[in-house]
């Protein structure tokens, strides 16, 4: 009895320990310092760089780079010049790429999750197998695809021309128009397991009663999917689609490893485009201006997406 007031006092002190912001900041300090060094300061520096004439002569002495005002932005946005036109083109290609990859990955992931929803003997095995493309290091998977897509000694042409006789012409998959198809294909192959993983987790949280009720009302699989699965997955899907979109939009590994130094014009994705225009010409000022524009574009798109989905959610309620 005599102990109790002391114990509550200690517990209160313990709770008070958690309310000491000083210690919290101390615990956060390493994370904060690293985030500052690698993310926040570079972002600020990037914006600063975009207003400078930062060419190769000033890399080691960047503070001496002359002020450029908005010139870098004007060059990047001038669609009549070669630089601006190719940047805009690259943006459209990237947008198409991201939309196709998100749609394809989501669709495959959703169908696979649906097919594996029921417990069955091979479920765990298949689930693990389906995750393998995502589990491979991205560059290793893309290098393998580079081999599969070779014109003369690759598997895909052998399959299409010699085995299935679908076409007589051995296509160049890594050059010209088909290179866009190739990069989308490889990216979907790599990303759909992620969609599968998330959608599968989302499906587990849908109460079975809902399906039971729908089945009693005479709903077939199609209607159960439309009336139960999809609406219940909506919150998961909203996040999944956004994350997938941002990942693929910023994707560097797939095009860079698939095409090497010679990116075909048709598959000129924006990250590689900025990378190459920065490190080929060593014009970091212009490269930074392009990066900042890319960030603004993504922020605009993300905000629009979030507002749109939030408004629809409110209407639905």
């Amino acid at each position: 009895m005599a102990d109790r007031p002391g114990a509550t006092g200690a517990a209160r002190r313990a709770g008070a320990g958690w309310r000491r912001p000083g210690l919290a900041y101390l615990l956060l300090l390493p994370a904060l310092a690293l985030e500052l060094l690698v993310h926040l300061v570079p972002m600020a520096v990037g914006v600063w760089m975009s207003f400078r004439e930062l060419t190769q002569f000033f890399i080691r002495n960047w503070s001496a780079a002359p002020w450029a005002g908005l010139r870098n932005y004007r060059v990047a946005l001038d669609v009549d010049s070669a630089i601006g036109a190719s940047l805009l083109r690259s943006l459209w290609i990237t947008l198409a790429y991201a939309l196709l990859v998100v749609a394809g990955s989501w669709l495959l992931g959703f169908v696979a999750a649906l097919l594996l929803q029921r417990p069955m003997r091979s479920r765990g095995l298949l689930r693990t197998l389906f995750l393998v493309p995502y589990a491979l290091p991205a560059y290793a998977a893309v290098i393998a695809w580079n081999f599969l897509l070779q014109r003369d000694n690759g598997m895909l042409n052998h399959l299409l021309v010699d085995n299935l006789h679908l076409t007589d012409d051995r296509a160049f998959w890594l050059l010209g128009d088909r290179s866009f198809v190739a990069v989308v294909l490889v990216s979907v192959w790599r990303h759909w397991p992620f969609a599968f993983l998330i959608i599968m987790a989302g499906m587990q949280n849908i109460p079975t009663d809902l399906y039971e009720a729908a089945a009693i009302d005479g709903a077939g699989p199609g209607q159960q999917i439309r009336r139960v699965t999809l609406p219940m997955l909506r919150p998961v899907n909203l996040v999944l689609v956004l994350v997938l979109f941002l990942w693929t939009f910023n994707d560097f590994t797939t095009p860079f490893v698939l095409f090497g130094a010679a990116t075909p014009d048709q598959a000129d994705l924006i990250s590689v485009h900025i990378y190459q225009s920065s490190f080929v010409t060593w014009n970091f000022g212009l490269g930074s201006a392009m990066s900042v524009l890319l960030l603004l574009f993504l922020l605009l798109l993300t905000t629009g997406y979030l507002l749109l989905t939030a408004r629809r959610r409110r209407r639905a309620v």
């Binding site: 309310r19 570079p42 760089m49 990250s271 490269g287 990066s291 993504l298």
Partner: peptide, 29 residues
């Protein structure tokens, strides 16, 4: 465990850097 000013801001900032294009950090870094 702790409640302190800036807690939400820190979480949001850190998470959102995850979404930015890597190319944005590459040149300055």
């Amino acid at each position: 465990r702790f409640r302190f000013p800036g807690r939400a801001l820190f979480s949001v900032t850190v998470l959102s850097t995850q979404m930015f294009p890597g190319i944005l950090f590459l040149l300055p870094l």
